[in-house]
Design a protein around this nucleic acid. Sequence first.
DNA 1: ATGACACACGTTATAGCATAACGCAATTGA
DNA 2: TCAATTGCGTTATGCTATAACGTGTGTCAT
Lengths: 140, 140
Amino acid sequence: MNAPVSSPALTKNQSLVFDVLTRSDAPMSAYTILDKLRDHGFRAPLQVYRALDKLLEFGMVHRLESLNAFVACAHPESDCCAKGHGHGTVAFAICESCGHVFEFHDHAVDHRLGDWAKGKGFKPAKTTIEIRGICSSCAA
Amino acid sequence: MNAPVSSPALTKNQSLVFDVLTRSDAPMSAYTILDKLRDHGFRAPLQVYRALDKLLEFGMVHRLESLNAFVACAHPESDCCAKGHGHGTVAFAICESCGHVFEFHDHAVDHRLGDWAKGKGFKPAKTTIEIRGICSSCAA
DNA sequence: ATGACACACGTTATAGCATAACGCAATTGA
DNA sequence: TCAATTGCGTTATGCTATAACGTGTGTCAT
Ligand SMILES: [Zn+2]
Ligand SMILES: [Zn+2]
Ligand SMILES: [Zn+2]
Ligand SMILES: [Zn+2]
C-alpha cells in the first residue's frame, strides 16, 4: 500500500480549515469556510485557498468539482486499498437533498477507466467521479 | 434504444451557441462563447447561459464540471448504446495540453456505479466522470 | 553571524463563472 | 380576445478563484 504524498504537521491556518471541514456534515465552499473562520482572524479568501491547496496535496481534503466545494476525506472502513489515497480513484455520491457525501473506491471502475486510457494512449493525471442524487435517508 | 429527451428546432441564439461549440476543437467557457458571438448581437452572459441550458436539456451539449466549460456532444461511432443520450452515463477524457476532449461511454463503469448506488439505496440523478490527463498526440 | 533561500502568511485588487430580477415581444391554445 | 408560455434583452449582483505585492520566520551553507 502506498503512503500518502506527505503529511507534515499542519500550520495553524491549515488546522483551522481542516477542523471546520471535519466538523461539517456537508461540503463547504471556500467562502463558507472563510465565514466560519472570521472569528479566528481569517479575513481573505486566499487564506482559505492556500490552506485548502495544501490539504488537497496531503490528501486530507477532496474537491467536489460539480459543487465547487470541499470535504474532509472520509474513506469508509471497507476501502482498505484506498487508505491514505495512495492508490486508486475515489468516487463520491452526493445527496442533493441533505448534502451528505459518500466517499468510496471501486476497483472495477478504476481499472475499467484505466483500460480505456491505455487503449487510447491517454495518460490520466486525475479522475473525477461524482454521482449526484438522493440518498436512502432522504428518499424514504 | 431510448430517444433523446427532445430536439425541437433551435432558436436563433441556441443555434449560434451550438455552432460555435461545434466548430471549436476544445471546450469553451460561457464567457468565451459570449465573446465569439458579440458580432452576432450577443451582449450579456445570460444570452449564452439560457441557450446552453436548453442545449444541455436537449443533450446536444455537455458541461465539463472540472473545467466550468462546455462541449458539443461528440459520441464516437462505437458508442451505439449511447446515441442520443437516451442511455447510460457519458465519460470524458480531457487533455490538459491540447484541450481536446474524448467522449465515451462504458457499460461496465456505468453498471458498476449503478450497483453501488443500488446497494446503498442511493438514487442517482446525474453522474460526472472526467479524466484529466495527456492525450496520446501530446505525449508523443 | 550573515546572507540566501524556502515557505507560510496577510492584504488589496482583479479576474472568471453564474444567476436574480425586471420588462418586452411573439406564440399558442382556450 | 385573453391568458399562459416561452424566448429575449438589459442591468445589477453574487459567488468562485487567483495575481501581485510585501512581511516575517526558520533553515542552512558559508
Ligand atoms: Zn478520501
Ligand atoms: Zn440525503
Ligand atoms: Zn454526448
Ligand atoms: Zn492533447
